[in-house]
Amino acid sequence: MRADRLISILLLLKKRGKVTTKELAQELEVTQRTIHRDMEALISAGIPIFSERGKGGGWSIMDNWQNRLSWLKNEEVQSLFIPSSNNLLADLGFNEISEKAREKLYSSVPYQHKEEAIKLWERVYIDTSTWKDRTEHQAFITDIKRALFNEKKLKIIYEKYNGKSDERIIEPLGLVSKGDKWYLVALKKGEYRNYRVSRIKSVIMLDEEFTYPSYFNLQSYWKKSKKEFVNNLPRYIVQVKVLSSIIPRLKFTGKFVEVIEVGNNDIDQWLPVTLSFHSEEEAVEYIFGFGNKMKVANPVHLKDTLIIMAKDVIDMYKE
Rank of each mutant, 00 (worst) to 15 (best):
243 L>K: 14
159 E>K: 15
151 E>C: 11
212 Y>M: 06
229 F>P: 00
190 G>M: 09
214 S>A: 14
156 I>Y: 03
184 L>K: 10
218 L>P: 04
187 L>G: 01
141 I>F: 13
209 E>T: 07
252 F>H: 11
244 S>Q: 09
196 R>S: 06
158 Y>G: 04
257 V>K: 07
239 Q>H: 15
199 R>L: 01
142 T>I: 01
194 N>T: 08
175 L>S: 07
181 K>Q: 09
223 K>V: 09
190 G>E: 13
146 R>T: 11
182 W>R: 04
243 L>E: 11
208 E>M: 03
188 K>L: 03
161 Y>V: 06
169 I>T: 14
202 S>D: 06
242 V>A: 15
187 L>R: 14
195 Y>I: 02
250 L>S: 08
177 S>Y: 15
219 Q>H: 12
161 Y>E: 07
140 F>T: 01
137 H>Y: 10
175 L>C: 06
147 A>I: 00
210 F>M: 02
179 G>W: 10
241 K>T: 02
185 V>A: 10
193 R>T: 04
175 L>P: 01
216 F>R: 05
160 K>T: 05
220 S>I: 05
189 K>I: 00
204 I>F: 08
249 R>K: 13
195 Y>F: 15
211 T>H: 08
150 N>F: 08
216 F>Y: 15
238 V>I: 09
257 V>T: 07
211 T>P: 00
237 I>V: 14
196 R>V: 06
154 L>I: 03
241 K>P: 00
191 E>N: 15
242 V>Q: 10
189 K>W: 02
248 P>M: 05
222 W>F: 12
157 I>H: 02
215 Y>T: 01
217 N>T: 03
193 R>L: 06
253 T>P: 00
248 P>V: 05
240 V>C: 10
188 K>T: 04
242 V>W: 06
187 L>D: 04
184 L>P: 07
229 F>H: 11
190 G>D: 11
240 V>A: 09
222 W>V: 03
257 V>I: 04
245 S>F: 10
199 R>W: 04
165 S>D: 03
223 K>W: 10
194 N>P: 00
162 N>E: 05
154 L>K: 12
169 I>D: 06
188 K>S: 09
144 I>F: 06
178 K>W: 08
204 I>L: 08
232 N>H: 14
150 N>R: 11
219 Q>D: 15
213 P>E: 09
173 L>F: 04
237 I>C: 07
155 K>H: 09
153 K>Q: 14
181 K>C: 09
151 E>T: 07
160 K>D: 04
206 L>K: 10
191 E>I: 05
243 L>A: 03
244 S>G: 01
217 N>F: 11
197 V>M: 02
256 F>S: 13
247 I>D: 08
215 Y>W: 12
189 K>E: 12
250 L>T: 00
166 D>E: 13
187 L>S: 12
204 I>A: 10
187 L>I: 04
250 L>Y: 09
217 N>P: 01
166 D>H: 12
200 I>N: 03
137 H>L: 03
158 Y>R: 06
221 Y>A: 01
240 V>M: 07
169 I>M: 08
204 I>D: 12
210 F>A: 03
182 W>G: 00
226 K>G: 02
188 K>E: 13
204 I>Q: 14
